[in-house]
C-alpha cells in the first residue's frame, strides 16, 4: 500500500516526517470521531478522514507542504478548518442570494438542486468529511465546474456559476425566454437541462445579424442571415464573429459585471465547434 505521497522536491526524510505528522493528526481525528468508544475503525473510513485532512490542509504542492510542516500540522489543520467553516457560511449566503433572485422560469431540476444545496451548511461535515459533497446536484450548468474541486469549494463554484447564469437570464423578459426554451425542448420545465444556454446563444446569434437581442426572436429569415454571414468562415473567423457578437450582447444589455462578461464570452467560445459542425453539414447537404 502506498503512502501519503508528494511528487516531490522533499527529501525522503522530510517526506517521512510529513507522513508521520499527518498520521498523528489522523489518530487524533479518529479518537474524536469514536469518542473513545472504539479502538479501531474501518480502513475505508480512515481513508475518508485522510482525504478530509488533506482537503483542510490545502496542500497543492511541496512548497505548501513545507509551509504546513513549518507552521505545525495541527495548527495548519485548525486554520484550514476555520477557512472551510467560513466558506460554508459563504455558501449559505450565496444560496440565499441565488434563491431569492432566481429567474421567473420554472425548471424542476434547478429548484430540486437549490433545495438540496439549501441543506448543505447543515449536512456538510467540514471536519471529518470536508472533501465530500453531500448535495444532490442535478441541474446542469452551461459551463460546468471542475470536478477536481471538492467539498465546499465545489459548491461555492457551482453557486457562483449559477448566480452568473441567472443574473444574465434575469436581464431578459421571461415571456421572451419561454418560446426559445419551448423550441429547444418542449418539456424544458421538467427536464434536467440548462435553461440559460439556449437563451444566451439566441442573444449572441441575434447580435451576430444586428437584430433586436432582447426580443430573442429567431425565425427562418434570421437563420438564413446567420448562414449567409458565416457560411464561408474559417473556424478562426467564426470564433472572432461569435466573440464580437457576445461583446455586442454585453454592450446592448449594459452588462458591467466582469464575471457575467467572461461567462458570455465563454458561451460564445463554446458555440464555435458546434457552429462549425452545423455549417459543414449544411454545405455537405
Amino acid at each position: 500500500m502506498s503512502d501519503v505521497s508528494l511528487s516531490t522536491t522533499l527529501n525522503i526524510e522530510e517526506q517521512a516526517d510529513f507522513q508521520t505528522e499527518i498520521f498523528k493528526l489522523l489518530a487524533v481525528l479518529v479518537a474524536e470521531y469514536t469518542k473513545g468508544k472504539s479502538t479501531s475503525i474501518p480502513e475505508s473510513l480512515a481513508k475518508e478522514f485522510m482525504e478530509s485532512i488533506l482537503f483542510n490542509l490545502r496542500i497543492t504542492d511541496d512548497a505548501k507542504a513545507i509551509e504546513v510542516m513549518t507552521n505545525g500540522i495541527h495548527e495548519s489543520f485548525e486554520k484550514g478548518l476555520s477557512l472551510t467553516k467560513r466558506k460554508t457560511a459563504l455558501a449559505r449566503r450565496l444560496w440565499k442570494k441565488i434563491f431569492l433572485s432566481r429567474p421567473d422560469l420554472f425548471n424542476y431540476s434547478m429548484l430540486q438542486t437549490l433545495s438540496s444545496i439549501k441543506k448543505f451548511p447543515v449536512i456538510y461535515d467540514c471536519c471529518f468529511f470536508a472533501h465530500q459533497n453531500p448535495c444532490e446536484i442535478d441541474y446542469q450548468l452551461c459551463i460546468p465546474v471542475s470536478h477536481e474541486l471538492k467539498g465546499v469549494d465545489y459548491i461555492i463554484e457551482y453557486l457562483r456559476h449559477l448566480f452568473v447564469e441567472n443574473a444574465i437570464l434575469n436581464r431578459f423578459d421571461p415571456e421572451n425566454c419561454k418560446p426559445v426554451l419551448d423550441n429547444y425542448c418542449k418539456t424544458w420545465q421538467t427536464e434536467v437541462l440548462n435553461i440559460f444556454e439556449p437563451v444566451a446563444e439566441t442573444a449572441v446569434m441575434l447580435a451576430l445579424i444586428g437584430e433586436d437581442i432582447k426580443s430573442l426572436k429567431i425565425g427562418e429569415s434570421e437563420l438564413t442571415k446567420i448562414y449567409c454571414i458565416l457560411s464561408d468562415s474559417t473556424q478562426t473567423e467564426l470564433a472572432a464573429a461569435l466573440n464580437t457578437a457576445a461583446r455586442q450582447v454585453i454592450k446592448t444589455m449594459s452588462i458591467k459585471s466582469q464575471a457575467q462578461k467572461v461567462y458570455l464570452l465563454r458561451v460564445a467560445e463554446n458555440m464555435v465547434p458546434r457552429f462549425a459542425c452545423l455549417l459543414k453539414k449544411q454545405v455537405d447537404y
Binding site: 500500500m1 508521520t20 480512515a46 481513508k47
Partner: peptide, 14 residues
C-alpha cells in the same frame, strides 16, 4: 496527494 494509508506507519503509531 493521495490518501492511501501506510500500514507500516499505522503500525508504528499504534
Amino acid at each position: 496527494m493521495d490518501a492511501q494509508l501506510s500500514t507500516h506507519i499505522i503500525q508504528a503509531l499504534a
